[in-house]
Write a protein that binds this DNA or RNA. Structure first.
Length: 249
DNA sequence: AACTCCCACAACCGCGAACCT
DNA sequence: GAGGTTCGCGGTTGTGGGAGT
């Protein structure tokens, strides 16, 4: 099928966004929403392609984003989800309120992958590196590899719980998703699972999260002024944060 | 102080899927 | 059903800042 380029290369600005551009984009979306990303830059007076605007909004400007390092709970969840889903960052991000696929992907590549390697765990297969050589012994996954690792995962959220299902390799685990999984993970594997993990929503600073973010000056606009708009566009927001089963457009 | 290297993260690119006509 | 358009995803690259020499 023929594909038009997403934007006219001529006259389209690339690279880092300026504060002025952010302001224009936010102002436009707050006022009008984004019925069609392709039209947004033109209507907002930006010399960017629609794709760039969408990315900027979803990864950086969206008011429901939680920024900063992942908590221990979130990090462990990312590892578990990656063991099951692989590099399906959008699916993983959908389970982590306020996190974006791009953010998780970056964190995985920069922090988590290295951390796993330091622990002697293959970040791709989630199995112990020294056990991979011998197929018979390759029964262990990330969360069971050693006492020290188990200790490190003793965050307030999981209390050091080492799930019974994690002594399967990823392939086995995904093929048998269901019976052996703990209830939480069972729920996660459902495609239409609502965003759960109340634990995450209740993390310190997450209550009245937008207000806290705005107070900290992390968003370039007044949160209070956005609330009304956010309510008006609630259905859009839900779709945008990963409720994949909502109808598109 | 100047230079180089490394790291983290924002942004881009290309592709496939979904949707529309 | 075919062709065209738009969106979203995942991989990759570019860039700025900090650390090290």
């Amino acid at each position: 099928m023929g594909r038009r380029p997403c934007c006219d290369k001529l006259g389209v600005k690339k690279g880092p966004w300026s504060a002025e551009e952010d302001e224009k984009l936010v102002g436009f979306i707050l006022a009008n929403g984004h019925c069609c990303w392709r039209a947004v830059p033109k209507l907002a007076g930006l010399l960017r392609c629609g794709k760039s605007c969408r990315l900027r909004w979803t990864n950086y400007l969206r008011p429901d984003l939680r920024r900063g390092l992942l908590s221990d709970v979130e990090e462990q969840l990312v590892i578990d989800l990656h063991a099951r889903l692989g590099n399906r960052w959008s699916k993983i991000a959908a389970m982590l309120p306020g996190r974006t696929d791009n953010e998780i992907k970056n964190l995985w590549n920069t922090h988590i992958k290295k951390k796993l390697l330091r622990r002697g765990i293959d970040p791709v297969t989630h199995q112990l590196l020294d056990r991979q050589a011998s197929p018979v012994a390759s029964q262990s996954t990330v969360t069971t590899d050693s006492k020290s690792d188990a200790d490190q995962f003793q965050s307030p959220g999981n209390q050091g719980h080492i799930p019974s299902w994690d002594n399967k390799n990823p392939a086995e685990a995904s093929s048998s998703a269901g019976s052996a999984d703990p209830p939480l993970m069972n729920c996660l594997w459902e495609d239409d699972a609502p965003v759960l993990l109340e634990e995450l929503w209740q993390l310190p600073g997450n209550e009245d999260n937008y207000g806290a973010i705005a107070a900290a000056g992390q968003v370039p606009w007044d949160y209070e002024g956005c609330c009304e708009w956010l309510l008006d566009y609630q259905d859009f927001e839900e779709g945008d944060v990963g409720s994949e089963n909502l109808p598109r457009r």
